[in-house]
Design a protein around this nucleic acid. Structure first.
Lengths: 340, 340
DNA sequence: CTGAAAGCGCTTACAG
DNA sequence: CTGAAAGCGCTTACAG
């Protein structure tokens, strides 16, 4: 297989200089239309493909964005990554994507690899742990960085933060459970001491304080297994609890499965609301009410924000919150009502 | 913020020529250990980061692999992509990842973008449709390409194909259902006329022919909704069917949900086996038996295969099949038995 | 072992 | 509008 054709080959065939070819490539208006056409045909005849790598060297933007995600196997993050990547694609950027598996060391390694590869900007949903050195390396390399979904570095003036408005989601979910007649509501899941946990709990705590209801908080991992465990603990220790707001949909699904196994009817005897509204929520039985974070719109918005920063230099605000809403389904609604 | 330091800056500080710095960078053995040490310190003092882009220009390998996936929101493919990407990372490669959303046009576009970006090789789980032009563009650019999971281009001598051994999975699942006492087994889901569908059906058809059982095939989309539809159709048209092998886990879960809603006990009255063994299978109730494709090992293996091709020039065999196994859970096992 | 020179494929001023 | 020249940050022979 022969060497890839370059602009010189195209120039020779078109009978112009290579500068002219370069100008055509960059859609410069100073080249006559007739010349453009000649160059264009020469390009297809040669089978020319643009070499971005070479262009970058001369200072042009690489058109590569680094996307670093703490857990790509989790559909919540997958959804975000996919939406972001597709928005970038539509704007003619490509994404270098890496899963860090919640490992700050691995995270540091992939970030450095991406800097070497010359990505133009970073979007990071960080693993918990110390990111100072990692983020500093990005700053030193002069690349914009947005931290999303988890605020791990407090220097939001340098590394702007964006996330859905969890606090508000937590509030409206709690109010919904109360309106449905819940007399004692538990908050289930989420590791103690983490920002996301306190945010997702904060609206719940605020509402309960307003109406003087005692909170019941069961913190723990954010998976189905903890949902199972929580059901057992509630039965043993807090048998007056008749509703739960969960840290995320996995915890909620874990609880649902447990109730299904023991034959309890969720929606009537017990009300559950999840968080994130992943796709499965509407597909399971009973279907799961959940705080919808519109993560797909969120991903799109982040893509646009970071491109605006890159292309127009408009640095995003230090903290950005995107709207959330509540999707009510069977798990928090009396069957008799929903069948009306 | 100052310009990024280059090897010249490092060379100046270390008091050597830039060639020497380059040699150190590439771990060449011909540089004395003492000199290396001096250069290394100079690098950290300057805050030097390697510029791979520049290195590529001179012919070095980019260390970038293009990963193009038909549906990144589907956990099966996410698992594959993640495992592949992490294996690449461990070998000091990075992955440019794109979701094509089953759209051959989008696929063509992202592939061309990746060629411009200078990826060294492609791994593609293709969207259905005509990929000839897209694949030809890759071949013209001289990049290795492996098609995985779906054989869309028959030219496997040029574009080697790899997938789990679906046929065998289909066979062992069918045999398992028969051993459990199934008297009539349906195959549910999978679009007609697609390779994957016929492969996942082939073992089932073969076994049924051997024992002279009439097949019942309900082809259709591969999502939960079709699982619902299938349950209704089975009840109406084939009420002697007492077991189902599903095209994938989503279809199976759709069936499970439907049975749960109507109070039928899966595992006793009706046996179900899914395909792919996504993570949820063990977490739902009843837990879902499934053909385990070990997609994580598969991703790792593909990464290694493509790197071997790239680094050692050892082109993979035209067709590669990886082993599968059956994971038996509640959905295909009599409760009385499983509780022993 | 180390230095000076050429070149990878583009873009960017700068003349014409 | 178009051409000739320099340079982006490396690597690669080729001398010393």
């Amino acid at each position: 297989m022969a060497r890839r054709p370059t602009i010189i080959d195209v120039a020779r065939r078109a009978g112009v200089s290579k500068s002219t070819v370069s100008l055509v490539l960059r859609n410069s208006p100073i080249v006559r239309e007739a010349t453009r056409a000649i160059v264009r045909t020469a390009m297809t005849e040669e089978g020319y493909v643009y070499n971005r790598t070479a262009a970058n060297m001369r200072g042009a933007d690489a058109g590569l964005i680094g996307l670093v995600i703490n857990d790509l196997r989790n559909p919540f993050f997958t959804q975000f990554a996919t939406s972001l990547q597709m928005t970038l694609s539509a704007r003619n950027y490509s994404a270098v994507i890496a899963n860090t598996d919640e490992d700050p060391m691995l995270q540091d390694q992939v970030v450095r690899a991406m800097i070497e590869h010359g990505v133009s900007a970073f979007v990071i949903s960080p693993a918990y742990g110390d990111v100072t050195a990692t983020f500093n390396a990005i700053a030193r390399a002069g690349k914009p960085l947005m931290q999303v979904l988890r605020k791990v570095d407090p220097r939001v003036d340098l590394f702007p933060f964006a996330a859905p408005d969890y606090r508000r989601g937590s509030r409206i979910a709690t109010e919904h459970l109360l309106k449905g007649g819940a007399e004692r509501i538990a908050f289930v899941g989420g590791l103690q001491g983490r920002n996301v946990t306190s945010e997702r709990m904060s609206g719940y705590l605020a509402v309960l304080e307003e109406i003087q209801m005692d909170p019941v908080v069961l913190t723990g991992r954010s998976n189905r297994a903890f949902g199972h465990e929580a059901v057992r603990r509630l039965e043993m220790e807090f048998d007056d609890v008749d509703a739960a707001l969960c840290f995320n949909d996995f915890v909620a699904m874990g609880m649902l499965t447990d109730f299904a196994r023991s034959g309890k009817v969720v929606g009537t005897n017990f009300r559950i609301v999840g968080f994130d509204d992943i796709e499965d929520c509407s597909q399971i039985y009973p279907s799961l009410s959940s705080v919808h974070c519109d993560i797909s719109a969120f991903g799109k918005r982040i893509a646009e924000t970071v491109l605006a920063w890159l292309e127009e230099g408009s640095k995003p605000q230090a903290e950005m919150r995107t709207p959330v809403s509540l999707v009510v389904r069977e798990s928090s609604q009396d069957e008799t009502l929903s069948n009306l």
